[in-house]
């Protein structure tokens, strides 16, 4: 967080590029505890989960969700609720990936340090992007305005 940016402004920017690491839903800024100062009373909040949530980059959530669903990642066998179980597995992997990216220098508190050029649609599809698939995609979508 830069010195020029107060906390609420930082949270406003963060909610633009992050989502809930449990359900992938959009985050809101909510007043949670009373204080006369915004910095001390607002938090990022996921209304779908009903919790205070710092969030994770949307791209990280997308690849994580695919990984958990397709690879059957499971580390919460003692949770009975299947929806909660899946959400916690996704959150766990998202935390690991986020931690790795921060420590490797790809992410900081403002998000990805380098722009991602992978289209959103492919984030949910492939773990290893093969050249021929990427070429085929580009040929079809070269004239699209949006990715």
């Amino acid at each position: 967080m830069t010195e020029q940016m107060n906390r609420i402004e930082y949270l406003r920017q963060r909610k633009q590029h992050c989502c809930c690491k449990y359900c992938g839903g959009l985050l809101e800024i909510r007043r949670v505890a009373f204080s006369e100062q915004d910095d001390a009373r607002v938090e990022l909040y996921c209304p779908r989960c009903g919790k205070i949530e710092f969030g994770v980059e949307k791209e990280i959530y997308a690849v994580t969700e695919y990984f958990v669903e397709e690879m059957g990642f499971q580390c919460y066998t003692d949770i009975e609720n299947p929806i909660l179980q899946k959400q916690m597995n996704i959150a766990k992997v998202a935390e690991i990936i986020s931690w790795g990216f921060v420590n490797l220098g790809y992410c900081d508190e403002n998000g990805f340090r380098y722009p991602l050029t992978i289209p959103d649609a492919l984030l949910h599809e492939e773990l290893n992007l093969k050249r021929d698939k990427w070429q085929a995609y580009k040929e079809v979508h070269d004239n699209d305005d949006t990715d």
């Binding site: 967080m1 930082y10 938090e43 009903g50 205070i52 710092f54 921060v102 508190e109």
Partner: peptide, 23 residues
């Protein structure tokens, strides 16, 4: 607090807020 995880609740004590302020 309701659905927040134990670790995130403990980490929130670092800065006196209820969530996590930054990485």
């Amino acid at each position: 607090l309701c659905r927040e995880s134990v670790l995130s609740i403990v980490l929130s004590g670092q800065n006196g807020i209820l969530g996590i302020s930054e990485y």
